[in-house]
Simulated assay, not measured.
Amino acid sequence: MWRDLAIRKRKTEVDPQIGIITEIAAEHGIKTPLLTRLVELIHDIEDGKREQSAETFNELLNAMEQEI
């Protein structure tokens, strides 16, 4: 995924590789806020809404801190 975003500047396979986990978990009533946030951030990078940067990574860290 990193290579797709950083080098090839193209969409990743985040949905079938990671997003599916959040879907299956939701079907079983399991919340996956960090994985959900990770998928959202990757989509934002794909869509040009965010840079692939330390700042974006910090968004994930912030979400993690809120869950602790």
Rank of each mutant, 00 (worst) to 15 (best):
L35H: 11
D44V: 02
D47C: 14
K31E: 13
R37M: 04
W2I: 12
K49N: 09
R37Q: 01
R10C: 10
K11N: 10
S53F: 00
L34S: 00
L5W: 14
I45C: 09
L5K: 04
E46Y: 07
E23F: 09
R50M: 02
E27T: 02
I68P: 03
E27N: 00
E59G: 03
W2C: 11
T36H: 06
D47W: 15
P33G: 02
D47I: 04
E55I: 06
E67H: 03
L38R: 07
D15E: 14
A54T: 15
E67P: 01
K9V: 04
V39N: 01
E40Q: 13
E13L: 02
D47L: 14
N58V: 07
I20R: 14
I24Y: 01
W2F: 15
L60Y: 11
M1E: 07
K49I: 03
E13M: 11
F57I: 09
A54N: 12
E55M: 08
D15P: 09
W2T: 13
E67C: 00
T32K: 03
E65W: 06
S53N: 11
I7C: 12
E51L: 12
D47K: 15
E27H: 10
I68D: 08
I18P: 08
N58L: 11
L41H: 14
Q17K: 05
